[in-house]
Amino acid sequence: MTARTVVACGYSGDCLRVTFTPEGVRVDSTSRPGAVDATPEEWAAFVAAVKRGDFDQPAERGRR
């Protein structure tokens, strides 16, 4: 399996880059130094938390 990269950019031109590899996931910014590496299990837990709304702002929680 080769690495697959997904890039999502905001209005400011700053892009979030997510690279999937057999070893895990690397998340970094196209305009800021540094990266976060996660195992497949850590990534799955993060995605599940996002889907549950764990990171929603308080005013947004009732909108689902």
Rank of each mutant, 00 (worst) to 15 (best):
52 R>I: 06
31 S>L: 11
28 D>V: 08
33 P>I: 04
9 C>V: 13
11 Y>S: 14
3 A>I: 05
39 T>V: 01
20 F>Q: 08
32 R>M: 07
35 A>C: 02
49 A>T: 00
29 S>K: 00
30 T>D: 12
12 S>D: 09
53 G>L: 00
11 Y>I: 13
38 A>W: 09
59 A>S: 08
21 T>D: 01
49 A>G: 12
19 T>V: 11
39 T>M: 03
25 V>D: 02
22 P>T: 03
14 D>T: 10
27 V>F: 01
18 V>F: 05
21 T>R: 05
18 V>S: 02
46 F>D: 09
8 A>P: 00
38 A>Y: 08
52 R>N: 11
52 R>E: 14
8 A>D: 11
39 T>P: 06
24 G>I: 10
44 A>Q: 13
41 E>R: 09
4 R>Q: 15
44 A>Y: 07
41 E>H: 07
35 A>T: 03
42 E>W: 01
32 R>P: 01
56 D>I: 02
19 T>A: 10
40 P>Y: 02
31 S>T: 14
58 P>I: 01
18 V>L: 12
59 A>D: 09
8 A>K: 13
50 V>I: 05
3 A>G: 09
9 C>A: 14
53 G>V: 00
47 V>G: 04
43 W>N: 03
39 T>N: 06
40 P>H: 04
7 V>Q: 10
19 T>L: 08
17 R>V: 15
25 V>I: 15
41 E>F: 01
47 V>E: 12
20 F>K: 06
8 A>Q: 12
23 E>W: 09
60 E>T: 08
30 T>W: 06
11 Y>M: 13
16 L>Y: 01
63 R>A: 07
49 A>Y: 01
35 A>H: 04
59 A>K: 05
21 T>A: 07
37 D>A: 10
61 R>F: 04
38 A>I: 06
52 R>G: 06
62 G>S: 14
63 R>C: 05
11 Y>N: 12
30 T>M: 02
63 R>E: 09
56 D>Q: 12
50 V>F: 00
30 T>E: 06
